[in-house]
């Protein structure tokens, strides 16, 4: 008798709790990954899908892929979906450069910023047997002759390239003369580092972590404002006297022309997502760092990043 009463009470409580979240749980979202299935943005979109439904924030989430041109084709489609309050798109730092590089007719500032989700610090490394010991050593070489310092990293105009340029400028070298060699995929760049083919390499910390811990690569500096929690021994670039900071972030944006109510609903849902334990579990499993910024802060952050990237790309001569 008593147990059945408790049961009934529990059912009622659950139903009540269900009612309060009902407004959200009815939401049907579409998340576009502006890249082919399997890539980083796709992974973010599918993880969001998983967490949003598991946490009961949205009733259904559909992930679509729009491939091509550093995500700018997807962006163009998003800009075209004016006023659609159920559409989101994953994007990131790389897209800022791709827009400039591809002379994209649409711009990220046209979209409605919703939130920044994750960020990863980059790391500058040299082979262990290199005479370069610190950021200061590398800076001196870059200043003396930028041509003789070969950098290995990811695609042209990407985060790695921008960091190499920022480093060169901060060191007092001529960014126009930078000798940056883009490799396809982290593996090839890493092989070039291990084989001693290049002076220094840049990538996300995670990609080089194994080699750093195995003592094959030496950290010259990480691009974060303070030392990383999982690598307390690695100094920041700033500590080495090179005043550069750069994070490779990922975020979500929505189409332009949303009403205030739509905006609040979307950013509310993503805010819930970012604070859910389901999302925290995914971040941990995937090794992503939480870098949540709500829509207002993300908006001004995005504007600042756009200005910065544009200047660097002009300095390096990637954009005329």
């Amino acid at each position: 008798m008593l147990t059945s009463f408790i049961k009934r009470g529990a059912v009622a409580a659950v139903a009540l709790a269900g009612l309060t979240t009902a407004a959200f749980a009815q939401m049907e979202l579409k998340i576009m990954a502006p890249a082919a299935p399997g890539g980083g943005w796709d992974g973010t979109a599918r993880s969001m899908q998983q967490a949003l439904t598991a946490a009961g924030i949205a009733k259904s989430v559909q992930v679509t892929n729009v491939t091509g041109a550093g995500g700018t084709i997807g962006l163009a489609q998003l800009i075209g979906a004016k006023g659609d309050g159920h559409q989101l798109m994953v994007n990131g730092f790389v897209m800022v450069g791709a827009i400039l590089l591809n002379k994209s007719p649409v711009n990220l500032t046209q979209a409605t910023p919703i939130a920044r989700l994750t960020a990863e610090a980059l790391v500058v490394v040299v082979p262990t047997d290199s005479p370069i010991k610190s950021a200061k050593d590398l800076a001196e070489r870059v200043k003396a002759d930028p041509a003789k310092v070969t950098w290995a990293g990811g695609s042209a105009g990407g985060a790695d390239h921008i960091l190499a340029a920022l480093f060169t400028e901060a060191a007092g070298g001529d960014a126009k003369k930078i000798n940056y060699i883009p490799f396809s995929g982290g593996g090839e760049a890493l092989a070039a580092m291990l084989g001693g083919r290049v002076t220094a390499g840049i990538s996300g910390y995670g990609e080089f972590e194994g080699q750093i811990k195995a003592g094959k690569l030496r950290v010259v500096g990480v691009s974060a404002s303070k030392r990383l929690a999982n690598a307390p021994d690695a100094p920041t670039l700033k500590e080495g006297g090179v005043n550069v900071e750069l994070l490779n972030w990922r975020s979500v944006v929505a189409p332009p022309g949303l009403s205030d109510a739509q905006k609040t609903e979307l950013s509310g849902a993503i805010d819930k997502l970012a604070k859910s334990k389901e999302w925290a579990e995914i971040l941990k499993a995937r090794g992503w760092d939480d870098a949540y910024l709500g829509s207002a802060e993300f908006d001004s952050f995005l504007k600042a990043e756009t200005v910065r990237v544009e200047k660097v790309m002009k300095d390096v001569g990637l954009v005329k």
Binding site: T67, G68, A69, G70, T72, I73, A76, L101, N102, K103, S104, S155, A156, G157, I181, P182, S184, L318
Partner: peptide
């Protein structure tokens, strides 16, 4: 498509789908 080493477009004639 996009030249891997300089990131600029070749023979795409302004068609964004060809950039890849």
């Amino acid at each position: 498509g996009i030249d891997k080493l300089t990131g600029q477009a070749r023979l795409t004639f302004g068609v964004p789908e060809l950039l890849n």
